[in-house]
Design a protein around this nucleic acid. Structure first.
Lengths: 224, 224
DNA sequence: TAGCAGACGTCAGAGGTTATAACGCAAATA
DNA sequence: TATTTGCGTTATAACCTCTGACGTCTGCTA
């Protein structure tokens, strides 16, 4: 991310780190989070196992970086989609972003599970993760903010959301938009998550129409 | 489950298996699915590692049984709740079952994740799992079936659901109930899943009011 | 009741993992 | 050019899963 790695050494270091993470993502796609092995990554890169410990403190640190990269990738994907459809109606932009979320998840199910599946036991998400999760959440929130009416917060959920909005800074979308965005996130996550873990396979339900119905349900619900 | 283990040997065998699974569940609660270690279980039980391989083919077989037990426990919990509230209105019964699902998940988050989180890599759910998942799904479906109007299926989702209903046998709830039950399952799963993986912690949103809102949204939505 | 088959638990070990320590070498820096 | 710094190696410890060989003890059967 930082533009200029000064020394050639740092450049090389950055390059090695990236290749390690690339190989790790390949292993992730094949065998899931628990299948990522420092030794196997090193072998794939043509070095011995312990060499990688010059680049990552331990296996968890590597996974943590993969999580951050995953969030970043998701956020950039959704931002790009929102930008591509910036001329369309907010409703359609929301539909596109939602569909993009699902497509992103299905394109790399294991990556989705790395972010939203079983957390690594002793894992505590660093601050950066929250910010990146925020970024991924934004395109949905922004689209809905254009549709939402202004209105005073009412109820426990509204109060929490307003508090979060103030703490977070930046623009202040109507509380109705926050409400709807959180519920949209939850509903999208519900369908996508069930689809990715193969829960629908047992009942022969194709998740596509279900997903569309849930997207529409968010738009159709009254703002209250 | 089978009532009478004939020989004292089989009785002892069953007992040892159950204790191993009990210890495994303790480890699961502490360190998550990947933290379950055959060796550690054995040590906790006062025997050496390989001894347990007389009772479980391998680590995956043990995890598979834990998954089945988890589904069974969830199904029985929801069935019990539905039975306890059988005199109340279907709406309230649905509310209670939904709340029970969430309470069950929060009581044993790691168990929830074992069932609905990242699947174990080489794990293929046996037939039994689908039946047990069905059982857990039933109380929700039954409550909604009492409310749903009859009606001809319309749309892709409806066709799939009808096909599933026929394949499954037993009573034939209205397709509108199937539709709503699947969407209810998806929505409940969305909130609960995000709550269990701690996704709401970053935004300071207490999941309780969100969960209530989602439950009500299922009931409030038109049957169409 | 006596004997025996089979189940059980142990040890030994192969092959895998994460992770650390000590060593030599090459490259960047002063 | 001399020195420091970083890198990759091997060796090693401490885990892990899982197999095979070997006694022991138990419960069924004759």
């Amino acid at each position: 991310m930082s533009a200029a790695p000064r020394s050639p050494r740092e450049r090389f270091r950055e390059q090695t780190r990236n290749e390690a993470k690339r190989v790790a993502m390949e292993q992730l796609a094949v065998s899931g989070p628990s299948g990522i092995s420092v030794n196997a990554i090193a072998k794939e890169m043509g070095v011995t196992g312990p060499a990688l410990y010059r680049y990552f403190a331990n296996r968890d640190a590597l996974l943590t970086e993969l999580v951050a990269d995953g969030y970043r990738d998701l956020a950039e994907t959704l931002e790009r989609i929102a930008h591509e459809h910036r001329r369309r109606s907010p409703e359609n932009r929301f539909r596109e972003v939602a569909a993009g979320f699902r497509a992103w998840a299905l394109a790399g199910p294991q990556c989705f599970l790395l972010l939203f599946g079983t957390p690594v036991p002793g894992y505590a998400a660093p601050e950066e993760t929250f910010e990146l999760a925020d970024r991924a959440f934004r395109p949905i929130l922004d689209a809905l903010a254009e549709l939402a009416p202004e209105g005073a917060p009412s109820g426990a959920l509204d109060r929490q959301l307003v508090s979060w909005r103030e703490r977070r800074g930046g623009p202040r979308p109507p509380v109705a938009a926050l409400r709807k965005a959180v519920r949209a996130w939850s509903r999208l996550h519900g369908v996508i998550s069930l689809e990715v873990i193969g829960q629908f396979a047992g009942m022969g339900v194709g998740p596509e129409p279900l997903f569309r119905a849930e997207v529409e349900s968010v738009l159709a619900e009254p703002w209250v």
